[in-house]
Structures are given as structure tokens and as C-alpha cells.
């Protein structure tokens, strides 16, 4: 007699196929018009305040903020994602969206930012006091992947500082590096200065004598043809109210 166990194996196969990812989409249910903005990952925190201020002045609008690494956003926009405004932290990603012919108007610079070496405030396991400490063996370092703007800025910065770093993880967006730091999984990472100032004291910056333009990025915003409302949001961002919130969060003038 041959033992057979078809149902459990089939069940397991079903679960195997099921073990994929998760996704979500939705529409506003309270009668307000949804305006979706695809924003570079480093704008996550400032958009909490920008969203509140924008919705106060535009009570009929529900601003939906979708953040990811700039190349992801450009790819989403190029595939026709239903969004009104695209904000990338680099010109390269914006150019990719432009090539796909999905922009509805020329990109405008809305802010600047620059990178810094950051460590967890509550004591990293390895001492990192200077940028050069990143090169020491045993220091666990997370960087952005070179595909995303913060990764290229980090490489610029480290090259200018003449520090050769063997990263332990290359994250697909700056939020990934921030999370590794906040959880204390890495001793140091290269993030934006605004990530440190917006971390509620969880992160601290390692002092450097680098000029501001080293490892700097410029945020570009362009309305998308897929949905209306992009221009209004862009005007708000470059207007006095948006400008002030961006400055409060440590972003530089464009």
C-alpha cells in the first residue's frame, strides 16, 4: 500500500503561490476630490505638514501622498500611475518620466537637500565620531543603493571625504537607511540632513567639514497628465506657505 497525501501537498502548493506581496489602492469616500502626489522618499515627513496645510486651504481636496525612491516613482508615473504630481530628488528620474511623455508641464525645482553621516542617538554598537570611522572594520553601514538619488549623493559625499566604505546593505530608498538606523541594526548610514532633524532626536549627525554642495540633491516637481490638480499643488509648494514649511523642515531654497 502506497501512502498518499495529495490534499496537504496541494494545500501547501496553494500557500506557496499565495506567499507573494501585498498591494493596495483606494478611492476617497468622503466626497472630497483625491489628489495623489508621488513624492521622493525623503519628503515623507515634511508632507505630513504640507498635507495638513494644503488641505486647510483646499477643503475640497484629499491629498494622498505616495512615497518611494525616485526611480520607482518615475517608473510608476511612466506606466501611467493615476497621480497628479511627481516629485523626484534627481533630474535623471524626472527625465525618465518625461521620456515616457506623461508630464503635463515643465518640471520646477522646489527645494534642495544634502546628505550627512548619521548614527543612532542611543549609542551605536561601534563608535562613529568622524566620517573616516565608516571605513573601519566592524562598523556596520547602510547606504542608499546607487540607483536612487540619495545613493549617488552618498557616493559623492564619501568620495569627497576620501573615505572608502564597504556598505552592509544598499537600501532602495532613504527611508530604508533611516529605519535601519532607528532600529539600531546599523552603526552608521548616510541620509539627508532633513532625516536627522526630523527624527525626533533618534538620529544624530556626524560632524563634517564638507561644503553644502557636496552630496546635494535638488527636488524637481512636475504635474502629470494622468490626473488634474497637479498644478494647484505645485503652486502651493513653490508659494510662500509651502516654502515656509519646507524651510522649517530644513530643506534649502531651490
Amino acid at each position: 500500500m502506497r501512502p498518499s497525501s495529495s490534499p496537504p501537498v496541494a494545500l501547501a502548493a496553494v500557500a506557496l503561490a499565495f506567499a507573494g506581496g501585498v498591494g493596495a489602492c483606494g478611492t476617497g469616500g468622503d466626497g472630497r476630490d483625491e489628489v495623489t502626489v508621488l513624492a521622493a522618499s525623503s519628503l515623507t515627513a515634511v508632507f505630513d505638514d504640507l498635507e495638513t496645510a494644503f488641505e486647510q486651504t483646499h477643503p475640497d481636496v484629499d491629498l494622498v501622498v505616495s512615497t518611494a525612491g525616485s526611480p520607482s516613482l518615475a517608473a510608476q508615473a511612466a506606466e501611467g500611475a493615476p497621480a497628479a504630481l511627481l516629485i523626484t530628488a534627481d533630474a535623471r528620474s524626472m527625465a525618465r518620466a518625461d521620456e515616457a511623455d506623461v508630464l503635463d508641464g515643465a518640471p520646477r525645482a522646489i527645494a534642495t537637500n544634502s546628505v550627512t553621516v548619521a548614527t543612532p542617538t542611543d549609542g551605536a554598537d561601534a563608535r562613529v565620531d568622524r566620517v573616516a570611522d565608516l571605513a573601519q572594520p566592524g562598523v556596520i553601514v547602510a547606504l542608499c543603493a546607487p540607483e536612487v538619488p540619495c545613493g549617488r549623493a552618498a557616493l559623492d559625499f564619501l568620495r569627497a571625504a576620501r573615505v572608502d566604505v564597504d556598505a552592509d546593505s544598499l537600501e532602495s530608498s532613504v527611508r530604508g537607511v533611516v529605519t535601519r538606523l532607528t532600529l539600531g541594526e546599523v552603526d552608521a548610514g548616510v541620509v539627508y540632513r532633513t532625516d536627522v532633524s526630523g527624527s525626533d532626536g533618534d538620529l544624530q549627525s556626524v560632524p563634517d567639514d564638507m561644503p553644502d554642495e557636496v552630496g546635494a540633491v535638488r527636488y524637481l516637481a512636475a504635474p502629470l497628465g494622468a490626473e488634474p490638480g497637479g498644478r494647484i499643488l505645485l503652486d502651493f509648494l513653490i508659494g510662500p506657505a509651502g516654502r515656509r514649511i519646507l524651510t522649517d523642515h530644513g530643506f534649502g531654497a531651490p
Binding site: 506581496g21 526611480p71 517608473a75 540607483e147 552592509d168 546593505s169 544598499l170 532602495s172 535601519r180
Partner: peptide, 28 residues
Amino acid sequence: FGATVTFAGNLPGRTRTLPLEIFTALEQ
């Protein structure tokens, strides 16, 4: 993919397995 990228990170040759390579390559 999910548990690996969250727990083990994403570094070529060390933790960037096929699904992570696909995820990284997809945009570029």
C-alpha cells in the same frame, strides 16, 4: 523576498538573491 529584504538587507553577493535582484533591476 519580503523577509529577506527586511531582515537581511540588500547587498550584491551577500544578501541580494534573485528576487531582490529583480526588485532592484526592475526600475533601471
